[in-house]
C-alpha cells in the first residue's frame, strides 16, 4: 500500500485506505454469511448429525475477547504517544491471538477424539470449514498486528503509526466479533 509516490508523506491521508479496510471487512462478512446461510439451508433438509461443541471453544472465546481489550488499550496509548505501553499491549494481543489459534487446534483434536470427522456428515464438515476459515482470518489479523508492531520499532512517523494501528484494530475487532457470532450461531443451530 504505497501511494507515497503521489502524496507526500508529511500530509499522509489514511481515510480512503481505512475505508478500504472497512469494505474488506464487509466482503469477508458476506463470505461468512454465505457459509452460515448454507448451513441453515442444508440443516433444514434433514439428515443432520447433532453433537456437542468442544469445551475448548469457551476458553478460546475468552482469549479472543481479552485480546480485543488489550488491543484497544494499545491503540489508546498509541494516540497518547506512549510507545512503550503501545508495544507491550500489542505484544500481549499477539500472544493472546496465538493462544486462540492453538486453542482452536486443541478444539479440533477434541472433536476428532469425540468421533467428529471432517469428511463425515455435513454438520461435522461445516463446523471444521467455518472454524478453519475463521482461523485463516486470525492468521491474517496476526500478520497485520506484526506489521503494526514492526512500525513501533522503525522510523515511521506518528501519523502512520496510528494509521497502521487503526487498520489492525478495525480488522482484529472484526474477527473477534465474527468469532462470537459464529460461536453463538453454532451453539443455537446445532
Amino acid at each position: 500500500m504505497n501511494a507515497e509516490n503521489t502524496i507526500p508523506s508529511n500530509t499522509f491521508n489514511g481515510q480512503p485506505k481505512k475505508f478500504v479496510t472497512w469494505l474488506f471487512v464487509l466482503s469477508s462478512l458476506m463470505c461468512f454469511a454465505g457459509l452460515t446461510s448454507a448451513y441453515i439451508v442444508r440443516k433444514a433438509e434433514g439428515n443432520w448429525k447433532i453433537f456437542d461443541l468442544p469445551q475448548t471453544f469457551y476458553y478460546t472465546t475468552a482469549l479472543i475477547i481479552l485480546s480485543s481489550i488489550t488491543l484497544h488499550i494499545s491503540l489508546t496509548n498509541t494516540k497518547k504517544g506512549q510507545v512503550a505501553k503501545q508495544k507491550n499491549f500489542l505484544i500481549l494481543t499477539i500472544l493472546l491471538g496465538l493462544g486462540f489459534l492453538i486453542g482452536q487446534y486443541i478444539a479440533w483434536k477434541e472433536l476428532v477424539a469425540n468421533g467428529i470427522f471432517f469428511s463425515g456428515n455435513p454438520a461435522e464438515s461445516f463446523l471444521y470449514v467455518i472454524s478453519g476459515f475463521h482461523a485463516f482470518h486470525i492468521i491474517a489479523g496476526l500478520l497485520l498486528l506484526l506489521y503494526a508492531l514492526a512500525g513501533t520499532s522503525s522510523k515511521i512517523n506518528q501519523t502512520k503509526n496510528i494509521f497502521r494501528m487503526e487498520i489492525s484494530a478495525i480488522f482484529w475487532h472484526f474477527i473477534d466479533i465474527l468469532w462470537i457470532y459464529l460461536f453463538v450461531f453454532l451453539l443455537i443451530n446445532r
Partner: peptide, 25 residues
C-alpha cells in the same frame, strides 16, 4: 461485487472440499 463475490467464494470453498477432501456438502 463486494457483496456477492464472497458468497460465490464460500460456495466454491465447499466445492473444493467436496472435490478433494472427501466432504459431502
Amino acid at each position: 461485487g463486494v457483496l456477492s463475490f464472497p458468497v460465490l467464494f464460500a460456495g466454491v470453498i465447499l466445492l473444493i472440499f467436496d472435490r478433494g477432501f472427501g466432504t459431502s456438502f
